[in-house]
Write a protein that binds this DNA or RNA. Sequence first.
DNA 1: GAGTGGTCTAGACCACCAC
DNA 2: TGGTGGTCTAGACCACTCT
Lengths: 257, 257
Amino acid sequence: MSEKRSALPPFKQVANDLRAEILRGEYAPGDKLPSENQLAGRFGHTRVTVRKGLEVLKSEGLTVSHQGKGVFVRERPHVNLRQTGTKYRERRATGVANFNAEAAAQGRKANQVIREVVEAAAPPEIAERLGIEAGAPMVARRLLFLVDGQPMQLVDACYDAQLARGTRLAEATKIRGGANAYIEDPEGPIARRIVQFVEDLDVRMPLPAEAEQLEIPSGVPVARVIRTAYDPSGSPLEVLDSIVPCDRHIFRYVIDV
Amino acid sequence: MSEKRSALPPFKQVANDLRAEILRGEYAPGDKLPSENQLAGRFGHTRVTVRKGLEVLKSEGLTVSHQGKGVFVRERPHVNLRQTGTKYRERRATGVANFNAEAAAQGRKANQVIREVVEAAAPPEIAERLGIEAGAPMVARRLLFLVDGQPMQLVDACYDAQLARGTRLAEATKIRGGANAYIEDPEGPIARRIVQFVEDLDVRMPLPAEAEQLEIPSGVPVARVIRTAYDPSGSPLEVLDSIVPCDRHIFRYVIDV
DNA sequence: GAGTGGTCTAGACCACCAC
DNA sequence: TGGTGGTCTAGACCACTCT
């Protein structure tokens, strides 16, 4: 007889109810949700079940929890507009400096930390784009980009070792104006122009190591952005392999057709 | 005395161990992991604790579970290269047809389903890009794109109602060659050229409704791609608001500088 | 110290799948 | 029918935060 209704498991019901309240704005970003025990009372289930519901919201990136304090509606951090396209014409040869320029344009302060500069065997994704054999030597400059002290991107700038050896690209020191300017500098050791970028974005959840280095809360994806820079002859000059947390970035591409 | 070591909670240990084995390739995509009871024995913890560890891997998108069958290493579906840039010059006026062309180029079969075509109040993100007042009327063509029967994108094509009323854009029928071709058709009622696209990508975890419609497994993010098409005078003609599951797509942008 | 979230166990029942 | 994952409870202890 009885309408064999719903049958939606209690923990999903908890998640659905709370999600709806959050999305309706009954809890605003930064607001604290009721305690787990209060919710257990309200829903008439054990704390464990309520926790399972809360876990769902956390993995959706809607909430964050702090031990001893409570569960809060997640606040979206300042978003960095990661713009690629027309602006490149203006800022052309800047490269690393481009990152600084974009942050400055938004009234914020960017800086870079060199994690390491090494010569190593190129993994397949990189070798393929650099136009060298997989396992052939590359020079990798591993950097961490920050804005206002918050980690924003993990960047590996990779070069054919043949090209980079003996240049400042292979030294663990900052390059004023950015690596791209250095590459294009007509007075420099490379002096080749960059006329095209190809960016590939692959989006997934972060590995724990990435989450830790970039301070990524749970439920926030990362984009792996692999950018290849080409000279006028179509030869690749640089492959930039970045891990970008998606809660602090919007990607914008301007395409003229 | 005793080195107060590790203290890593057992469920994290379970997750770490299994993750390492998966990433090392000891379990290949599609392989079945040992059953929860077997893992409980191996790790010397209860099934509940092991399950919590497995839950972590699932939310990272590394595994999928099937009731009655087991837990499996997730297989990445065929990836669709969603290319924007140079190819647009060749396929220019195609629009919806562009999606078909790209699928065909990869030897796969694409089709579209019209979910609905309605006139409605424009939400702020759309209105802003269409250059109309928030809440002003827009015509929205809500489509579902599929490739080989698998849902690939949820697309809302939005137009200023002033522009689209009385045209085929406002009718719930397919438009041969795509909406963009229709817009640009010099013999058509609109006959305006599209010379620039701006794409904004915002990446997050899907809402349950999106996950269901697009058959998105847990641990897979979505990109909300908002693409605005402009005519030579800089007036917006169309705003495409898409939800794209990130496990079936790689985004590629080609930028000439 | 009281309150909050974080973790674990033991045991139970259900739903689904394959044989 | 037996194995698999999915869900729930009751009770316990821990770690952190605030006052």
